[in-house]
């Protein structure tokens, strides 16, 4: 993949150690031709023990990162998906719900903060309306399908505006979920 291997390569282990190990040392770098011109990769001469230590450290960090990624993925995936993958243990937690909900609504929070009564939204003519194309047979289900669903409103006009935004969003997305599961 890399062109450098096609050249006259020098593998690190080809160099015999005489016991006197230098610290890291610059070897050579060509002078750049222009601002956008590619610079040659900086070459350095390293003591084998330093190189070994740094490699070991980087591999350990990489392995720890990979394990952490697997754990975080398991934590964040929906329970239904985990069950399909054979994970029986319930991984739902309040922290997970808080994080995922926050991720989805943070832009609404920002929109609320930036809301101004003078802002105008685009309007559309009836001819621009297109039929719904979804996997719910082209219709948007009524929120009443969800037992125990309720909406509470409180606070300033700005908060109510935000609630309406979220309600619209919920109707457009989350509230459709139970239909499929029923």
């Amino acid at each position: 993949m890399n062109n450098e291997e096609k050249g006259d390569s020098l593998q690190g282990h080809d160099i015999p150690s005489t016991g006197v190990e230098p610290e890291v040392k610059s070897v050579s770098v060509k002078k750049p031709q222009s601002f956008f011109g590619e610079r040659p990769l900086p070459a350095i001469e390293m003591a084998p023990r330093v190189l070994r230590y740094q490699s070991r450290r980087d591999f350990l960090v990489f392995g720890a990162g990979a394990l952490a990624a697997v754990a975080v993925t398991g934590f964040l995936l929906p329970q239904d998906t985990l069950s399909r993958l054979g994970v029986r243990r319930n991984m739902d937690s309040p922290g997970k719900e808080w994080l995922l909900n926050k991720a989805l609504r943070i832009d609404d929070d920002v929109a609320e903060t930036l809301y101004t009564v003078n802002r105008r939204v685009p309007t559309y003519t009836k001819s621009q309306i297109t039929p719904l194309k979804n996997n719910y047979n082209g219709s948007t289900p009524d929120p009443g399908y969800i037992s125990g669903w309720k909406l509470s409103r409180s606070g300033s006009l700005r908060t109510v505006f935000g609630t309406r935004l979220r309600l619209l969003f919920a109707i457009g997305s989350g509230l459709q979920l139970p239909l499929r599961k029923a």
Partner: peptide, 9 residues
Amino acid sequence: QPGVLVVRK
């Protein structure tokens, strides 16, 4: 001199 010649990629 001894040492391993490497390039920082």
